[in-house]
Amino acid sequence: MRPLIDVNGLHFSYLNENFGKEVLNDLNFSIQQGEFIAIVGHNGSGKSTLAKLFNAIFLPTSGTIFVDGIDTLNKELIFEIRKQVGVVFQNPDNQIVATLVEEDVAFAPENLCVSQEKIGKIVDRALEMVDMKKFKKSAVHTLSGGQKQRVAIAGILAMNPKCIVFDESTSMLDPVGRKEVLDVMKKLNRENKTTIINITHHMEEVVFANRVIVMKDGEILKQDTPRNIFSDEDLLKKSGLLAPQVTEFLNTLCGELALKKRTVLDVDECVEVLAEILEGEKIGDS
């Protein structure tokens, strides 16, 4: 099957600042329709630059990116690419264009010259999907961070994209807002088969992904399932990442007790394994 996003020998460097320094260095990977990808890495590892390359805001210095078969260098089809790959950015205040929720959601369809009666339906449907319909007529500045971010997502959904990139979209939110946004991501992936690319620092969000791409200094260190990533302690150290608390705890415990290594991803898994360890001791005792 043709991948939704296909990255080949991608290099990127900014033209004016940090001249000569490569931000991205020889990236090769592809993403299939319906995948849930997490991209992690330290600040300045090139993750956010990558997000802007996916929808042709930036163009490759060399190498290519194909989105649904279209080369992002193809200027004529640029709207086609941006329709397929929507990006939700970090700061909700800096990506909402209009004062009213419904007006903001309508922004992209207006740009795409959709007719008036169709826009109305699109807006309703998009707000429905992020569960913000009751705020349709609200002023954006009265909403909470999580709500604003959901409006931003609705604004992207109004383009009916195949893929949504979340560029640290939860990093400015409180735990409640973060959960709201994360729930929307999961729902879109599950129900609409939307491809999700979540660029994040929060390892608790990474565990939901099918595949994790770990970046460092503009290069891909490893791509694998969350479980395999979090069991690779060398990799974590090298990339400056921290596994979720329960994962780190059990990794260390197994090491110190000289047990076979078990990598867990959430509280329930951790309880299960711990129970086994403690249970085993009970049996050994009697």
């Binding site: 330290h42 600040n43 970090q90 990093s171 400015m172 620092h201 400056g240 990442l241 921290l242």
Partner: peptide, 10 residues
């Protein structure tokens, strides 16, 4: 620590 990567947070 809001908005920082794990290393920056530490």
């Amino acid at each position: 620590t809001v908005g920082l990567d794990p290393a920056g947070k530490e």
